[in-house]
């Protein structure tokens, strides 16, 4: 069976479902959201990152790079055009200034990592959260991994953005207890403009998931100031949710901390320079309530 490519396993997470949870971040996504919180999650392959503030200039990396892709002394240390992310430099770097983001794990390895916090899942009603990237893109892996989780009695929550053919998620649903569906825009044009993809699959998947009893579905809207938070956007969101028979929505506040990651990575992404807006949030909540859509606290 093929291993998964993940870029982090984070323990003691409290905002990704009930109780104390371990979140596995899967690498790879088909959307290209300009506001993506995890720019290192998009490429499905492992990639390199450089943290200039950690470098102690020991130069160990220079000798080990087979492609001479490391530029001495430069803040942009990695010559992206010749780097193939083989990770030899990162394996050696004593200061963890060079890091390989993304590693391959087998289902049993990953299960062991997740089960480490078993005692806390049991005591707090927590469990495993699959996040990313888009975990469903690694559907084949999950189809083997999730049954293992269920034999251990883990509560499994999937966070998804829904941009794939329904079959990919359908085969996983019986293993999943709870779904967080990130619904970014109420219209296809915005999806195309800000997320780099039409929303045909997303719309269809949301509709089909909403129609099911299980798993329990929570629709989350990541608030992107100005992009999906104007009154007409909120009205459109509300209308769409009511059509789907969804009476409650969770709102995710915008967080600009992802911009700090950009200089370390090989990416074309630009900072958006947007900031969380608490006043706007109140207005948005009120507007949803006006449309008889409840807002879950998070």
């Amino acid at each position: 069976m093929n291993p998964a490519t993940i870029f982090d396993v984070q323990r003691f997470c409290l905002h990704d479902g009930p109780g104390i949870r371990t979140v596995v971040f899967f690498k790879g996504c088909t959307l290209r959201c300009v506001f993506c919180q995890n720019p290192e999650s998009i490429d499905p392959r492992p990639e390199m990152a450089f943290y200039p503030e950690r470098c102690i200039e020991c130069r160990a990396c220079l000798d080990v790079c087979p492609r001479d892709a490391i530029r001495e002394g430069d803040v942009e240390r990695i010559d992206w055009s010749s780097c193939d992310a083989c990770g030899r430099c990162a394996a050696l770097c004593p200061a963890e200034a060079l890091r390989q983001i993304g590693r391959r794990v087998s289902a049993s390895q990953l299960l062991a990592e997740v089960l480490a916090d078993r005692a806390f899942f049991d005591s707090s009603g927590g469990g495993l959260t699959l996040s990313g990237g888009e975990p469903v893109l690694q559907s084949d892996f999950l189809a083997a991994f999730l049954p293992l989780c269920k034999t251990k009695g883990l509560h499994v929550l999937l966070e998804t953005a829904g941009n794939y053919r329904f079959e990919k998620i359908e085969r996983l649903l019986e293993w999943i207890d709870e779904l967080f569906f990130d619904f970014k825009f109420p219209d296809s044009a915005s999806y195309e403009r800000y997320s780099g993809s039409h929303s045909r699959h997303i719309e269809e998947n949301l509709e089909r998931l909403a129609a099911r009893q299980r798993p329990r579905l929570t629709v989350r809207i990541p608030l992107i100031p100005g992009l999906n938070t104007t009154d007409d956007r909120i009205d459109a969101f509300a209308a769409r949710l009511r059509q789907l028979g969804i009476a409650r929505v969770a709102l995710l506040d915008y967080n600009h901390l992802w911009e700090a990651k950009l200089p370390r990575l090989h990416t074309e992404r630009k900072p958006l320079r947007l900031h969380r807006d608490q006043v706007a949030r109140q207005r948005i909540e009120e507007r949803f309530r006006f449309h008889a859509i409840g807002v879950a606290s998070n």
Binding site: L14, I20, A119, F120, D122, S123, S124, G126
Partner: peptide, 13 residues
């Protein structure tokens, strides 16, 4: 509740 989870999980371990 999370603290209770932490404490009881730690004690159970």
């Amino acid at each position: 509740r999370v603290v209770d989870g932490l404490v009881r999980g730690y004690f159970a371990a």
